[in-house]
Design a protein around this nucleic acid. Structure first.
Length: 566
RNA sequence: UGCCGAAUGGUGUAACGGUAGCACAGCGGUCUCUGACACCGUAUGUCUAGGUUCGAAUCCUAGUUCGGCAACCA
């Protein structure tokens, strides 16, 4: 560390990494031990990915560091092992390993019970018979102090007995809780005798029927951290007001390991909602097809959409870690994606909105094999063969009957290059009775095979194409952002995020014309369809050798911008 | 009228008392067998007011604005 200091290129540390670096150099810790503590009650999303990259990143960056994956499963009402499986899958898909450090807060229930007893014996906790509403009322408000519970002064002996009977199932749900005895007049609401345990006669996904009392977050989390020897407990800003309680519990219990809780800002993304509640509404009310719908910001959704772990990690690195609660432009995420895909993914040609072109001077039955470059960014990716025939498809947008002068593509009498193939010139526009263009008749120049003219003449435009006879037809789904407004969370004028749903976030093309090699794409495989965007074979809906493609994102398109301006 | 926290171009961030920089987005251009990529250029910023200092984004004071906090959720 000492030697890295004056390296001008060394990146500046965010405030958390700075704290950790200081703790390391001061000798307070030898290596950071962090944790990612999801509650298994939903699927994780890009916001969690930020936390995952931070916590696991820290363990990778520091020799001897570790990051635990710990499920915070203290509320059996909401939690399910379905979610623990998906979360594990998502974390490891992102490229992080927890090794032996897989934990569950529920594994600590016995220890937690002992800690609670200790607190009771020392007069720091009591069993309270107030109802939920009464507790709320006694708590007061931010501006008014709370009132003491009438049960606050029960003796430790009575409390121990009551707590044991709570555990043994003698009381009904909601009739008793265990509370910390702190200060009902504290300006921090969380310190006004917070609830530590509640009765829930419901089976837990891991402990089954063993328990009918379950510890609350504030009691569980700090002690779980302590038990595991966490050095730095990183969480989001909303837990800032919980920190005094985190520290209170650990201090009163005199535990050896007292981790430092540090809060950072959660991620907000434009055109996106990231609250579990809202995501759940989207799923349950079928605005999307599921948690892994390619439009969802969940890790599983991003995966199906065609995002790569590298692009997500690059994004998380780019946004940094601060205490400022901002709104990050989703364009930054898309940029990280394109950056990665551009380097790594093979190119293919595909026509989404076809118009037929007949090459009138090309023999009828002839099939010519042409060589196409797989990835100009990576020569090792090699080449592939594309069949060229008399009838081909080109993109509708690549022809204009009456083109403006900035239009570089095909038009009556114009010559363009077919990528990797020939120069063609449009000779005739065929229309139906309604006056719609149905077909283009063109001639090709045999001398331009491969795409270059021996006489050195240039064409301004190069367009993509697919052989009509040999095309692989399949479904292609074009995804767009799910919301029409930058901040769908801003619920003004009585509107909710549902009022900003983008009705055209999914466009399905039933029979796009793809070059034949695409029929062999394996689920999850990504390509750049040249001049269109990045697409991947869907993980779920591609079956028996018929891949279905999702558009991951478009290419940057300065032409359409220019066009829209005029 | 409570407590906690945060304010740097349009957005996200850096600068740790000494030239306000980077990325994204925007705009303009070069290149091009992808109107992609790449490359070049460009506009826009320290919340306000005082103070300390030779010098303040940075330190102090006061204000302003924004976010979070009153689940037997996490």
């Amino acid at each position: 560390m000492e030697e890295g200091n004056n390296d001008a290129k060394s990146e500046s540390l965010d405030f958390i990494r700075e704290i950790i670096a200081n703790d390391l150099s001061s000798g307070k810790h030898e290596a950071p031990v962090t944790r990612f503590p999801p509650e298994p009650n939903g699927y994780i999303h890009i916001g969690h990915a930020k936390s995952i990259c931070l916590n696991f990143g820290l363990s990778k960056e520091n020799k001897g560091g570790a990051c635990h994956l710990r499920f915070d499963d203290t509320n059996p009402v909401k939690e399910d092992s379905e979610y623990v499986d998906s979360i594990k899958q998502d974390v490891s898909w992102l490229g992080f390993e927890w090794g032996d450090n897989l934990f569950f807060a529920s594994d600590y229930f016995d220890k937690l019970y002992d800690f609670a007893q200790k607190l009771i014996k020392e007069g720091k906790a009591y069993v309270c018979d107030l109802s939920l509403d009464e507790i709320a009322e006694h708590r007061g408000s931010p501006k008014t102090p709370g009132k003491k519970s009438p049960y606050r002064d029960r003796s430790p002996e009575e409390n121990i007995d009551l707590f044991k009977r709570m555990r043994d199932g003698e009381f009904d749900d909601g009739t008793k809780v265990l509370r910390a005895k702190i200060d009902m007049t504290s300006p921090n609401l969380h310190m006004r005798d917070p609830v530590l345990y509640r009765i829930r006669k419901i089976a837990h996904h891991r402990t089954g029927d063993k328990w009918c009392i379950y510890p609350m977050y504030d009691f569980t989390h700090c002690l779980s951290d302590s038990i595991e020897g966490i050095t730095h407990s990183l969480c989001t800003l909303e837990f800032e007001v919980h920190r005094p309680l985190y520290d209170w519990v650990l201090a009163k219990l005199s535990v050896e390991c007292h981790p430092r809780q540090i809060e950072f800002a959660r991620l907000n993304l434009t055109y996106t909602v990231l609250s579990k509640r809202k995501l759940l509404v989207l799923v349950e009310e079928a605005y999307v097809s599921g948690w892994d719908d390619p439009r969802m910001p969940t890790v599983s959704g991003l995966r199906r959409r065609g995002f790569t772990p590298a692009s997500i990690k690059a994004f998380c690195h780019a946004i940094g870690v601060t205490k400022f609660n901002g709104l990050t432009d989703v364009a930054l995420l898309e940029h990280s994606l394109r950056q990665d895909l551009n380097e790594t993914v093979e190119r293919r040609l595909a026509v989404l909105n076809p118009i037929k072109v007949v090459i009138t001077n090309f023999q009828e039955e002839r099939v010519e094999d042409l060589e196409a470059v797989n990835n100009p960014k990576n020569p090792e990716a090699g080449t592939r063969i594309m069949p060229f025939t008399r009838e081909i498809y080109i993109e509708k947008d690549d022809f204009m009957e009456d083109p403006p002068n900035k239009f570089f593509r095909l038009g009556p009498g114009r010559e363009v290059r077919l990528r990797f193939a020939y120069f063609i010139t449009c000779q005739e526009v065929i229309k139906n009775d309604a006056g719609e263009i149905v077909e283009l008749h063109c001639t090709y120049d045999p001398e331009t095979r491969g795409g270059n003219a021996p006489d050195g003449r240039k064409v301004k435009g190069t367009i993509h194409w697919v052989s009509a006879a040999k095309a692989f037809e399949t479904k292609v789904r074009l995804y767009d952002r799910l919301f029409t407004t930058e901040d769908p969370n801003k619920e003004e004028d009585g509107k909710t995020f549902l009022d900003y749903i983008n009705e055209s976030s999914l466009e399905i093309i039933a029979d796009a014309k793809l070059e034949p090699s695409l029929s062999e794409a394996t689920p999850g495989e990504s390509f750049q369809f040249e001049r269109l965007g990045y697409f991947c074979a869907d993980l779920k809906d591609s079956e028996n050798g018929t891949p279905v493609f999702n558009r991951t994102t478009t290419l940057r398109d300065t032409w359409s911008k220019q066009k829209n301006k005029s």
